[in-house]
């Protein structure tokens, strides 16, 4: 598992955020003989796939599964700038749920509408480029080769729901729950969150807000480090990565937040997700 983008909302190429990183969400899951899975296609996706170009992606032989939490800009904005999308032969399967009239494909088509983005349109397969397939998630459990994926809808206050993921491969489990806002701020109220996170070796969880900020940010669709750790406590996770950092949060503030979060953990190991950090599971 490698973090390529950990920042929420908008990329922050700014000095105060340089150490933890300013790219928007992208987490790569890879193994020697398993499928390649990218959690979200934020700006980190651009740099992650640029690195893949040195291997099979550069020869048009890559097969990538991209799982979207939702289609907010920070989760999809790296896709049109990804070099592997322009190499014929590459296959990219985009998994997610409808959030725009007409479905997932139509939502992503809006991003590459020529008024906004003068790139060849790989979603319409009009120009030479990767073969893109769309998987609108209906059945919450599906298989990618030997990997079992569970995807459930998560609440976001009064906004459209987003998708959380549980990915199981050879006895190891990663749970990815970002852009989630729990009713009454209590993850215990949300069975889907508990089910996705249950016993996970690694829980990657939204921690955009501080507990003292949450009152004035109701319905923004995010969590606090306290809620992230609370879910890890309840679900018996081994580790929890605090993720989707507020664009204004400085490196020093994230250092402090990590200590505060560790203080409320009852079992799980807690750390702040940092761009470039890799973990062997």
């Amino acid at each position: 598992m490698t973090f390529w983008g950990v920042r929420g909302s908008i990329p922050t190429p700014d000095e105060p955020q340089a150490r933890y990183g300013g790219n928007t969400p992208c987490v790569l899951l890879s193994s020697a003989d398993g499928p390649l899975i990218s959690l979200d296609g934020g700006m980190g996706f651009r740099w992650m796939t640029a690195e893949l170009m040195a291997g099979k992606a550069g020869r048009g032989q890559e097969n990538l599964h991209l799982m979207l939490a939702h289609c907010h800009w920070d989760h999809i904005q790296g896709i049109p700038f990804s070099p592997m999308m322009y190499v014929a032969g590459n296959r990219v399967t985009i998994h997610g749920r409808q959030s725009f009239e007409g479905g997932l494909r139509e939502t992503l088509l809006h991003q590459v509408n020529p008024s906004y983005c003068p790139v060849p349109n790989f979603f319409l397969l009009q120009d030479v480029g990767a073969t893109v397939e769309f998987h609108e998630i209906k059945d919450p459990v599906f298989q990618i080769d030997r990997v079992r994926v569970t995807s459930l809808e998560l609440p976001r206050g009064n906004r459209l729901a987003c998708s959380g993921y549980r990915i199981e491969d050879r006895g190891k489990t990663v749970a990815y729950l970002t852009d989630v806002e729990y009713p009454q701020g209590d993850p215990g109220t949300t069975p889907a969150a508990l089910e996705l996170a249950r016993g996970a070796d690694l829980l990657i969880h939204d921690a955009q807000f501080l507990p003292e900020e949450v009152q004035e940010r109701m319905n923004w669709g995010h969590s606090t480090y306290r809620q992230a750790v609370e879910l890890a406590n309840l679900a018996g996770c081994r580790r929890v990565a605090l993720f989707h950092h507020d664009p204004g949060r400085t490196d020093e503030e994230l250092d402090a937040l990590e200590l505060q979060a560790r203080a409320v953990a009852r079992g799980p190991e807690v750390f702040v997700a940092r761009e470039g950090l890799s973990l062997e599971l």
Binding site: R7, T12, P13, Q17, N23
Partner: peptide
């Protein structure tokens, strides 16, 4: 910066916004 924001070490001095 053109095209897209660059939050990478190679662009820190001149800026990535």
């Amino acid at each position: 910066r053109g095209s897209f924001p660059v939050a990478r070490p190679h662009a820190r001095r001149f800026g990535g916004n």
